[in-house]
Amino acid sequence: MLPQGTFWGIFVVWLYLVLMACSSRHQVVDVQPKVQRMAVQISAIFGEIVSPDSGEIFQEATSAELEMVISLAPTRLFRDGSEGRRLGVERASLRLGADGVPFRGFSLAGRAVELRTFPDGEILIIDWVETMAGAGRFMDVFELIFPAISPAPPSLARGASAPRRIIWPYLGERKLRWDSAVDAVWTNEGAEERAGVKTWRLIYTGPWRIHGGRRTGPGRIQFRGLGKASGTVWLDKSSGDLSGHDFEWSRTVTVQGESGQLQQVQKFVGTVKVIQ
């Protein structure tokens, strides 16, 4: 048993450490603005959603065309070397079906999240991602946009191949979380000039897995997904920054709620182009 004076001494030191740890909650280092703008286009095919019990069709099979212009602006640097970037949606449209009927109430434009990545592009956290998810925004379904603009390829010599995972989490409210990973094998196919820009051309392919959910409390839910991903990434030879990305990803998503389970097949073909 410690003497009372020693205990209070330790307690005061501990309290000081706690308060000091809580003191600097915001940006660690100011960063100079270097805004990147990108055009993203995705053609998607969605399978029907059917009740396995009654056969009721909740969603007919459909297709969708998503077009976005986004901006990426540095916000802060963290102590672990990772960096925050504000991903803002400048323009966005969603068209449905073969006729390309505009989706009414699509409200993605104007929204923003913070993408926290390591300098190589590996995604750690997407803050505020739930504000782009769900009804009228759909970034929970089109979430591959995040790795599409920040794919984090390995550093490879010409002609070399190596495995490297593409990972990103979805962190929602009330302990909702799922993790996505593509166990990609990357190959550097050499130099290529695109629109006057000298680039490295890298290709990747691998299985795409998703798992997570909310394990406890009301609203328990489980998300699982299995599919495959492949694509071509072009990196600016001088800066190493992303210059373009063509991709083709697909998955079967299974959502298990407290009283039912539903599945949907989802296929995505898309491009990312740096426009500024």
Binding site: Q59, V255, G257, E258, S259
Partner: peptide, 28 residues
């Protein structure tokens, strides 16, 4: 706004999304 159901593309209105969410268990 009604966020759920997540990870499933439901292009219908709020009622259509609510039907899916309720089938799954109402959590979303």
């Amino acid at each position: 706004r009604l966020v759920g159901p997540l990870m499933l593309f439901v292009s219908g209105d709020a009622d259509a999304r609510l039907r899916v969410a309720e089938y799954l268990g109402g959590g979303d």
